[in-house]
Simulated assay, not measured.
Amino acid sequence: MPIPNTAEDGTLELLDRRRSTPARQLGAPAPDHPTLLRILRSAVRVPDHGKRVPFRFLRIEGGARHVLGEAVATIGLRLRPGAAPAAVDKDRQRFAHAPLVLAVIAVLDPEDTIPETERLMTAGCVCFAVLQAAQALGYGGSWLTGWPAFDPDVMALLGLGPDERIAGFIHLGTPRIDVPERERPDPAALLRDWTPA
Rank of each mutant, 00 (worst) to 15 (best):
L160W: 03
G168V: 00
T195Q: 15
T195N: 14
R176Q: 15
A188R: 07
I166E: 05
E183T: 13
I177L: 13
P175C: 07
P185A: 00
L157V: 07
A156S: 15
H171S: 09
D163Y: 10
P185T: 08
M155Y: 04
E183M: 10
A167L: 09
L190P: 00
P180E: 14
E181N: 11
P185H: 05
R184C: 05
D186V: 08
L160D: 06
T174V: 03
R192K: 11
P196T: 09
F169N: 08
L172M: 05
I166Q: 04
G168D: 01
L190C: 09
L190K: 04
L160Y: 02
A189V: 05
P187W: 02
F169P: 01
H171Q: 04
R165A: 08
M155G: 14
G168M: 01
T195V: 10
R184G: 08
G161A: 14
G168R: 06
R176H: 10
G168K: 02
A156I: 07
L190S: 02
R176F: 05
G173F: 09
G161D: 13
G168I: 00
I177C: 07
L160N: 09
L172D: 01
P196W: 06
L158T: 10
L191G: 03
G161N: 06
R192D: 06
P187L: 07
R165M: 09
L172W: 05
A189M: 12
T195L: 09
H171F: 11
L160I: 00
M155Q: 15
V179H: 08
G161K: 13
P175Q: 03
D163G: 03
T195S: 14
L191S: 10
P187H: 01
R192M: 04
A167S: 09
L160R: 07
A189I: 04
D163A: 13
P162Q: 14
P175K: 01
R184H: 12
L190N: 02
L191E: 12
T174I: 11
I170C: 13
R184Y: 06
V179W: 09
R192C: 01
D186E: 02
T174F: 01
E183L: 13
L172F: 02
P196C: 02
I166H: 04
R182Q: 14
I170F: 08
R182M: 13
R192G: 02
G161Y: 10
D178Q: 14
E164H: 00
L191Y: 12
A167E: 03
R184E: 12
